[in-house]
């Protein structure tokens, strides 16, 4: 499984983001590397390198950064590793990218898949064909909030299907936790789920099960 390193000038920012992303990807090694040893703001090369080592479970590591010199520190840590296939720094929105990368890693994505997930977290969603569709009433209290959204994204990530969730006039790619959350669908709301691709029917069946179980709440 791919690991993540979150490189930030602020220890609190990196730790908070690791907590947020970790909630949606409980099995992924997500290592915060923020701030300097003395507690001030900055990026510490040794801390980033150590996090890079610890995040690597053997399949590789994706590093995300907040701004400016954090990218340089991350790039340098990867360069010093001497093996470009083991780690990569991704230019993605720090929060959205980390969450999307974590979910992709949890779903078993390889280095490229996790990088792509992080990058596309900042891109607008494309409009897709409706395909086969079903309406679902969300039975859990919080609706498509962080944890249920992550659960839904993970469920469809394993399948060869493009799943779209519509709520009101908004739509979201079900592979994107953030897009799902931004729908703002709460308990009792009705969402329309459609799917295309070879596994479309299986995708809808799994979404149905998930909704029926109240997202295991």
């Amino acid at each position: 499984m791919i690991g993540l390193v979150l490189v930030s000038h602020s220890a609190k920012l990196a730790e908070g983001l690791a907590e947020l992303a970790g909630q949606m990807a409980p099995d992924v090694r997500i290592l915060p590397a923020g701030g300097l040893l003395d507690g001030t703001l900055g990026t510490d090369f040794d801390a980033v390198s150590a996090a890079l080592d610890r995040a690597d479970a053997g399949d590789g590591v994706v590093l995300l950064y907040d701004l400016g010199s954090a990218k340089m520190t991350a790039d340098l840590a990867v360069e010093m590793l001497g093996d470009p296939s083991r780690a990569a720094v991704v230019d993605a929105p720090f929060v959205e990218g980390a969450v999307a990368a974590a979910v992709a890693a949890q779903g078993g994505g390889d280095l490229d898949a996790v990088l792509t997930a992080a990058v596309s977290a900042g891109a607008p969603d494309e409009v897709v064909d409706a395909g086969t569709g079903t309406d679902f009433v969300l039975t859990n209290d919080i609706g498509l909030h962080a944890r249920p959204a992550a659960l839904l994204a993970r469920t469809v990530a394993e399948l060869d299907a493009k799943v779209t969730v519509r709520f009101g006039d908004k739509q979201a790619d079900a592979a994107s936790v953030l897009a799902l959350m931004s729908l703002g669908a709460r308990g009792g709301d009705t969402v329309a789920v459609s799917a295309t691709g070879p596994d479309a029917a299986e995708a809808l069946r799994r979404v149905h099960d998930l909704v029926a179980r109240g997202f295991d709440e």
């Binding site: 300097l36 900055g42 990026t43 510490d44 090369f45 040794d46 400016g68 010199s69 340089m72 520190t73 790039d75 340098l76």
Partner: peptide, 15 residues
């Protein structure tokens, strides 16, 4: 220098 300078100058001079 990479480990001790910090900021942008650490990675840059280190590189």
């Amino acid at each position: 220098l990479i480990s001790t300078v910090g900021g942008a100058a650490g990675p840059l001079y280190g590189t």
